[in-house]
Design a binder for these strands. Structure first.
Ligand code: ATP
Length: 782
DNA sequence: CCGGTCAAAATTTTT
DNA sequence: TTTTGACCGG
C-alpha cells in the first residue's frame, strides 16, 4: 500500500485496523471489544482523510465527552499540527449547540438562548408540579425529569406524547396521568424563557434539520465526513442526526462496542448499531479482535464475565500480551477497611514495580463511595484526584453568579430570575413572586418585562416592594451596561460580579464553607480570565454569550489538569469509559450496590450492570484488583452486605483470593453473618464453618458452598448436582404453572437457591424446560 | 419576609 | 451522616 509516502502511521495499525482506516467506499462500522484500538482507528481515520485531501474544517467528529474530544484533537495535532484545530470535533451537545445558535430564530428562540443544566430543569419541574397542585411524592421531580428526558431522546414532542394512547395509558397505570401535562407546560415554559435543556439540544437540532430543508442542505454541504466514537451509546435523537446528515452521501464512520453500552438510562439504544447496515446502504462492518491494552488474564476474565449476557453480538477478543497476574479479590470488613486495602496495595505496587500514582485508578459504581476513599487517601497521604460528582458549576454560589450572567444575556430566563431575584436578600418574597407570576401568565409576557412596567398593573404589591422589584430590573440593566461598556472583558466581568452583591454577601459568612465559597468565586474569575485570554489568542472577541455557552456544557471531568500534581484517579466506572490505567481497583462489589439495587429486578438492567463491570475490568492494563466489604455504611446506617453475584461469574482460575485479617474474620463472625438475608437456615448452617477460613469470600454456591464450583457455571450448564426442594415460594413440585411464552405446564422439580433457584417444568406444548425462577415469571395456576 | 429549629428522607450512572 | 423541607416566632 503506497498511499502514504513517508509512512509514519500504517506501522501503528494492524491489518484489520488498517483495512478499516483505508476503506473509503462508503459507510463503515467498526465493532470491536475493549482495548482493540477503536479510538486509535478513529484517530487514524481522520488523519487518513486529511491526507486524502479532505479539509479538516469539513470533518465532523462526535464524541460523548469533552475530554475524549480534546484528547483526540491533541493526538491529531501532534501529527498534523495546528490544522487539527479546524476539525469540527466535540460532543454532540457542544457541536450542535453552536449550530443551533446560528439558526435559533427558525426555531422560535433568540440566538442568545440559555442552556439549562439538570438542576435548572429540575427546579422548573418542581415548580410546575407545585403549581399544578400535584403531590410531589407521586410526581417525584426526578422521575418526571427522567420521563421527559426519555421522551425528548426518542424525539417525542409534548404533542406526540399527548396523542399517544399507549403512553397515556401506561402513565395512568403508574398513577402519573398528568405527566403529559407537566411535559407540555415544561416545554412551554422553557420556550418562553428562551432556554433549552440538554435534551433539547439534540431534539431541536432534529427539528431544525427536518423542517428546514435549506438548512439541512447547507449543513450536508458543510460536512464531508461524519465520524462518531462510542456509537453504542447513541440514543435515537443522536441516531437521527447522523441519519439526516449522512444517510444520502454515506460518508460516515462509526466505532463502538455493544458490550460497553452503559448509558441506556440516557436513552442509549443498541438498535443503532444493529440497524446501521439498513440505515446506511452498503455499509461495511469491520471487526477488530486483538486487545492491545490488557494482559491475557484480564482479557479472559472480562470475556468470561460478558459471556453471561444473553444479548450481545458475538466477538472474539484475544491478547498477545503477557499472561499477567491473577486478578486479586479482597474481602474487607468494612468500606473503610476496603479503602485501607486499596491504599496499602497501591503503596506495595508502587514499591515493587516503580509505578507512579497516576497509573492507578480506583473505580466504583456510585459517586458517594468516593467519600470513604477520599478520607482514607487523605489519612494515608496518597495523592489522588476525584472526578465526577458535582461539577464546579454546580456549586450554589457559582450557579448564582451564572444566573445573573444569564439574565444579562437573556432577560427572559425565568429560572435564572427566580433564582437570584431575592439573592442576595432584598426583601422580595414568595407572595410577591406568586402575584407577579400570575400577572405574567395572564398577559403572556416574560417576568422581566412585567418587572419593567409594574405601573401598568394592579398587583396588590406595596409601594416599597414595588420599588425593590424595579430596583432589581434596573440592576440587571446596569449589569448589562457594565459588561457591554467595559473594554476589557475580564475587567467587565469583575465589575459585574462585584455589583451583584454576591461577593459581599459571602464575606459575612466566616465559616469554613463560606470561605470555600469565596474561593470558588475567585476561581471562577480566574477561569473567566483564562477564557478571555484563550479567545483572544484564537482571534475571537471574548463575550459573555460565548463564555456562557462554553461553561454550560462543562462537566467535572473537564477540570483542567494541574500537571504539577499527579495522583491516583478516583472515578465512577461510567466516567472511566474509554480510559486506561496500568493498575485498576474496582471496589464495592456487593449486591445492592453493584449490581445496583435498582437494577436487579430486570434482566435487561442486570445485563447493563454486567457490561459496566466489563468496562471496569477492561480499563486495566497490567493488574486488576477487586474489593468488597462485608458491611458498608450507608445513609447513616451500617448495613451487612453480600458479595456481588458478578464475582461468581469470573473464572476462579484467574482469581487470587486475598485473605482478610483474622481480626476481621472474628469481627465478622461476631456481627456479620447472623443478619444475612437470602439464605435458608440449612444453608446457613452448612456455610458456618467456612467463615473461619480464608475461603469464604464468595457467595455460597447453589450447591451449598463448594467454592471451587463457583464461577465455572456457564449459562445452561449444570456440571454438579443441585440441592432440590419440594417448594420455593409459591411454586411446588407437581403444581401447574403458566409461562408467558411456553404456556402451561407442570413442575417436575425445583432446585438451587436464591438467584439460582430453578424450576424444571414439563410444558404441555413445548416439553420439559429448566428455568431460572427469578426470570421465568412463572404464574401458579392452582 | 427572614432565619432558626427540628424532623424526615436519602435509594445510580451524565451531556 | 448529610441534606432537604416544613413550620413558627420575631
Ligand atoms: N495496532 C496497535 N499497536 C499497538 N498498540 C495499539 C494498537 N492499537 C491500539 N493500541 C493500543 O491499545 C490501547 C487501546 O486502544 P484504544 O483505546 O484505541 O481501544 P478502544 O477499542 O477504543 O478501547 P475501549 O473500547 O476499551 O475504550 C491503547 O493504548 C492503544 O494505544
Amino acid at each position: 500500500m503506497h498511499l502514504f509516502p513517508n509512512e509514519d502511521y500504517p506501522n501503528e495499525l494492524n491489518a484489520a485496523q488498517r483495512a478499516a482506516v483505508e476503506y473509503n467506499d462508503g459507510p463503515a462500522l467498526v465493532i470491536a471489544g475493549a482495548g482493540s484500538g477503536k479510538t486509535r482507528v478513529l484517530v487514524y481515520k481522520i488523519l487518513h482523510l486529511i491526507r486524502l485531501g479532505y479539509d479538516p474544517s469539513r470533518l465532523m467528529a462526535l464524541t460523548f465527552t469533552n475530554k475524549a474530544a480534546r484528547e483526540m484533537r491533541q493526538r491529531i495535532e501532534l501529527i498534523i499540527g495546528p490544522a487539527a484545530r479546524r476539525l469540527r470535533m466535540g460532543t454532540f451537545h457542544s457541536i450542535f449547540l453552536s449550530i443551533l445558535r446560528q439558526h435559533a430564530s427558525l426555531l422560535g428562540y433568540s440566538p442568545s438562548f440559555s442552556v439549562y443544566n439538570s438542576s435548572d430543569s429540575k427546579n422548573r419541574i418542581k415548580a410546575i408540579i407545585k403549581q399544578m397542585s400535584l403531590d410531589d411524592k407521586v410526581y417525584k421531580p426526578n422521575a418526571v425529569a427522567g420521563a421527559i428526558s426519555r421522551a425528548k431522546n426518542r424525539l417525542i414532542s409534548p404533542e406526540a406524547y399527548r396523542a399517544n394512547v399507549e403512553y397515556l395509558r401506561l402513565d395512568a397505570k403508574a398513577g402519573l396521568g398528568r405527566l403529559w401535562e407537566i411535559y407540555a407546560r415544561y416545554t412551554q415554559e422553557l420556550k418562553q424563557s428562551n432556554a433549552m435543556d440538554f435534551d433539547d439540544l439534540l431534539f431541536e437540532i432534529n427539528i431544525l434539520l427536518r423542517n428546514h430543508p435549506d438548512v439541512l442542505a447547507y449543513w450536508q454541504g458543510q460536512i464531508d465526513y461524519l465520524l462518531i466514537d462510542e456509537y453504542q451509546d447513541t440514543n435515537f435523537a443522536q441516531y437521527m442526526i447522523a441519519r439526516q446528515l449522512m444517510q444520502e452521501r454515506g460518508n460516515i464512520f462509526v466505532v463502538g462496542d455493544d458490550a460497553q453500552s452503559i448509558y441506556s438510562f440516557r436513552g442509549a439504544n443498541l438498535d443503532n448499531i444493529l440497524r446501521f447496515r439498513e440505515t446506511f446502504a452498503g455499509a461495511k462492518i469491520f471487526k477488530l479482535e486483538q486487545n492491545y491494552r490488557s494482559s491475557q488474564t484480564i482479557v479472559q476474565a472480562a470475556g468470561a464475565l460478558i459471556q453471561h449476557n444473553k444479548h450481545q453480538i458475538p466477538k472474539e477478543v484475544f491478547s498477545l500480551g503477557e499472561v499477567g497476574e491473577a486478578i486479586e479479590l479482597h474481602e474487607a470488613f468494612s468500606g473503610d477497611m476496603e479503602a485501607s486495602w486499596v491504599c496499602k496495595r497501591i503503596d506495595d505496587l508502587r514499591r515493587q514495580t516503580g509505578a507512579t500514582y497516576d497509573q492507578f485508578a480506583v473505580l466504583y459504581r456510585t459517586n458517594v463511595q468516593s467519600r470513604t476513599l477520599e478520607q482514607v487517601f487523605r489519612r494515608t497521604g496518597i495523592p489522588f484526584r476525584i472526578y465526577g460528582g458535582r461539577s464546579f458549576f454546580d456549586h450554589k454560589e457559582i450557579m448564582d453568579v451564572v444566573a445573573y450572567m444569564r439574565l444579562v444575556v437573556n432577560p427572559n430566563d425565568e429560572e435564572a430570575l427566580l433564582r437570584v431575584i431575592n439573592y442576595p436578600r432584598r426583601g422580595i418574597g414568595e407572595t410577591t413572586m406568586a402575584k407577579l407570576r400570575q400577572q405574567a401568565f395572564e398577559v403572556g409576557k416574560p417576568l422581566m418585562e412585567v418587572l419593567q412596567e409594574l405601573e401598568l398593573y394592579e398587583l396588590g404589591i406595596s409601594r416599597a416592594t414595588q420599588s425593590k422589584l424595579s430596583g432589581f430590573a434596573a440592576l440587571i440593566t446596569e449589569l448589562r451596561g457594565l459588561s457591554e461598556s467595559t473594554a476589557d472583558f475580564y475587567e467587565g466581568m469583575q465589575l459585574m460580579i462585584s455589583r451583584t452583591g454576591i461577593p459581599v454577601d459571602l464575606m459575612s459568612d466566616t465559616s469554613l464553607e463560606g470561605k470555600s465559597r469565596q474561593e470558588n468565586i475567585k476561581e471562577m474569575l480566574s477561569g473567566i480570565e483564562e477564557y478571555s485570554r484563550n479567545a483572544q489568542e484564537q482571534g475571537q472577541e471574548p463575550s459573555l454569550e460565548a463564555y456562557l455557552s462554553e461553561i454550560a456544557l462543562l462537566t467535572d471531568q473537564d477540570k483542567k489538569e494541574h500537571h504539577t500534581e499527579t495522583g491516583v484517579t478516583l472515578m465512577t466506572i461510567h466516567a472511566a469509559k474509554g480510559l486506561e490505567f496500568k493498575h485498576v481497583f474496582i471496589v464495592g462489589l456487593e449486591e445492592m450496590l453493584f449490581p445496583s439495587i435498582l437494577s436487579v429486578e430486570s434482566e435487561k438492567d442486570l445485563e447493563e450492570e454486567r457490561r459496566l463491570f466489563y468496562v471496569a475490568i477492561t480499563r486495566a492494563e497490567k493488574t486488576c484488583h477487586l474489593g468488597y466489604a462485608r458491611q458498608r455504611f450507608r445513609n447513616g446506617r451500617t448495613e451487612n452486605t453480600q458479595p456481588s453475584r458478578f464475582l461468581r461469574e469470573l473464572p476462579p482460575a484467574l482469581l487470587k483470593r486475598n485473605s482478610a485479617s483474622i481480626d476481621t474474620m472474628v469481627e465478622f463472625e461476631r456481627s456479620g453473618w447472623r443478619q444475612q438475608r437470602g439464605y435458608g437456615r440449612d444453608q446457613m448452617a452448612s456455610e458456618l464453618p467456612q467463615h473461619f477460613t480464608s475461603q469464604s469470600f464468595l457467595p455460597p454456591s447453589p450447591t451449598g458452598g463448594k467454592r471451587r464450583h463457583i464461577g465455572r457455571r456457564v449459562a445452561g450448564e449444570d456440571a454438579e448436582p443441585e440441592v432440590s426442594h419440594e417448594r420455593i415460594g409459591d411454586l411446588r413440585v407437581g403444581g401447574r404453572v403458566r409461562h408467558r411464552i411456553f404456556g402451561d405446564g407442570q413442575i417436575t422439580a425445583l432446585e438451587g437457591l436464591g438467584d439460582n433457584a430453578k424450576a424444571i417444568v414439563a410444558f404441555d406444548k413445548v416439553g420439559s424446560k429448566k428455568l431460572l425462577i427469578q426470570f421465568a415469571r412463572l404464574e401458579p395456576l392452582d
